[in-house]
Design a protein around this nucleic acid. Structure first.
Lengths: 113, 113
DNA sequence: CCCGGTCATAGACATATGTCAATATGGATG
DNA sequence: CATCCATATTGACATATGTCTATGACCGGG
């Protein structure tokens, strides 16, 4: 399953109707955000020094097993919200701000339609 | 299940760590967005004349049964993304732009951390 | 080269979710 | 009141999802 690039050039929800294909791609991303653990993971990565956190940092923040965290990280990677990089024994995760910004733009509804 | 007001005053993901309670509430909203049909429903409502659409308009746009659409509308109502109003025989749905804006703000990550 | 530490993958299982058919509700109209 | 239309609710069912245990893969240090 390849990461999504579909987020590019998505107009705000209002301007033009979402076709079924775009809706399916976007839904995958929002579904990834639709879990409290994954939201907290994003928050941890975002607020961590240097804009990155290693898996061990993240795992320590939860009462969940390491494979469970690994699973959530994979979900966030697959939809393009996180990237990762190995340095020595550790794997560091970072946000992909462009893709978050695309989602933000999509939900940015003009006050009056 | 009461609609969420928790979206108020959520700081961007970066600034402060999401605690478990906030994460759970936010996850409910993103989970509601994590379905292609519901995304298209929002798009239909948003782009419809007057900023509202009746259930019949929405149902016509899909190859799904009316109860299924009704179910999705309920999900979107329960997380505070849609409101509805009965006028005569028809029920009209509208966006709740404030809550969409809150989500948008949450995902609006500063380019450099 | 083996070993300990870090992370990922595989498989199993209980629960959540999307869909449908059937039915209920509630307003409008004759 | 009887009936039709628009919408909601219920219950059933197949699939998706989150979690765990067990195990594999990869790296660095003795």
């Amino acid at each position: 399953m390849e990461p999504l690039q579909i987020l590019d050039c998505s107009p705000p929800l209002v301007r033009e109707q979402l076709d079924a294909d775009k809706a399916a791609d976007l839904a995958r991303v929002f579904k990834a955000l639709g879990d409290p653990v994954r939201l907290r993971i994003l928050s941890i990565v975002a607020s961590h020094a240097g804009g990155e956190a290693c898996v061990c940092d993240i795992t320590d923040a939860f009462d969940l097993t390491q494979p469970t965290i690994s699973h959530h990280l994979k979900v966030l990677r697959e939809v393009g919200l996180l990237t990762h990089e190995r340095r020595g024994s550790w794997v560091y995760y970072q946000l992909v701000p462009e893709n978050l910004a695309q989602l933000s733009a999509l939900l940015d509804i003009p006050a009056t339609v």
